[in-house]
Design a protein around this nucleic acid. Structure first.
Length: 291
DNA sequence: CACTTGACCTGTCCGC
DNA sequence: TGCGGACAGGTCAAGT
């Protein structure tokens, strides 16, 4: 479930590892994972070198010196794991540190981008994710980027803008509004539940019925939770790992997510799991009473 | 247009 | 032990 903090953690890692690396070969498992025509791959990817690694919303952008960008969405189970050839030989058959995933490629590997002295593995158990090679100047014109909302940790994202944009979804529940990427970018199921608990708002409350004071609190909680999660290297519930194949530790700081039947860290009431906006949803019934 | 639901996939877990 | 079904949840298409 890579959300903003997970994708940002991968970006940070790749930004230290990839610049100036020259692509020597690419292999793909399914067209769905990497749909570009072989002729484009040969012209714009093989022989190109990486100039920058960026993130917008939950999308990873690997810029190349050919004027093309590898646009990557990890969706739910995607991983981008870098291994230098030395490390791969040394750790390929498993590593004493069990936070590292095992030898690569494995059965979830969909794309391998090879460099002169390293490989980048795109693994994706459920095949929902993808990598697309797109001209850099056209990236911002992709439908998703034209519609996506502001970055919640950018200075431009003020509490006023947050409250204005929520009004697009005033008749739906607050959790569905937070998950709507056109309202704001980067929130998924984990950080929706965590920030709503922080602001003491029940996820099924209609946006128009949430008092302004609570929305202001929610704005603060979203930024707090996302920043903390980035600091902890993201959340590993099951599949997520960073660019080095290591897990994130936010889950051990989570207050409600995946903590059903455990005590609320604020009041001790037993946390419950329900379904809101079609998603598994975790709340404290005392801190977040339903209206 | 606003909003909800189902589809896309595979692996895991639970009940029979 | 095996087997069917529910569940995991980001995004888009299709439906109301």
């Amino acid at each position: 479930m890579p959300e903003l903090p997970e994708v940002e953690t991968v970006r940070t890692g790749l930004a230290q590892l990839l610049p100036n690396k020259l692509v020597t070969a690419v292999t793909t498992d399914t067209d769905k994972s990497f749909p570009n025509a072989p002729s484009d791959v040969k012209r714009f990817l093989i022989g190109a070198s990486v100039t920058d690694v960026r993130r917008r919303a939950k999308v990873l952008l690997i810029d190349l010196n050919t004027g093309y960008t590898l646009v990557t969405h990890l969706k739910m189970t995607g991983q981008m794991v870098y291994r230098s050839n030395d490390d791969h030989e040394r750790f390929g058959a498993g590593h004493p540190n069990d936070s590292l995933i095992n030898s690569l490629p494995d059965r979830s590997t969909r794309v391998i981008i090879e460099f002169e002295d390293a490989k980048l593995f795109f693994n994706d158990q459920r095949k929902f994710g993808w990598i697309r090679l797109i001209p850099t100047i056209e990236v911002e014109n992709l439908d998703f980027f034209k519609k996506v909302g502001p970055e919640p940790l950018s200075p431009e994202f003020t509490v006023q803008i947050f409250m204005e944009r929520l009004q697009r979804r005033k008749n739906t529940n607050i959790k569905a509004a937070l998950l709507d990427q056109t309202v704001l970018a980067g929130i998924g199921n984990i950080y929706a539940d965590e920030s709503l608990w922080g602001a003491k708002i029940h996820p099924s409350t209609l946006v128009k019925n949430v008092p302004d004071a609570k929305l202001k609190l929610l704005y603060t909680e979203i930024q707090y939770v996302l920043r903390l999660a980035i600091e902890k290297g993201g959340s590993t519930d099951k599949n997520y790992v960073n660019a080095e194949g290591k897990k994130g530790s936010y889950m051990s700081f989570a207050r409600v997510f995946r903590r059903e039947n455990l005590p609320c860290p604020r009041c001790g009431t037993t946390i419950i799991k329900t379904r809101v906006a079609g998603r598994g949803t975790h709340t404290c019934p005392k801190c977040q009473p339903e209206l």
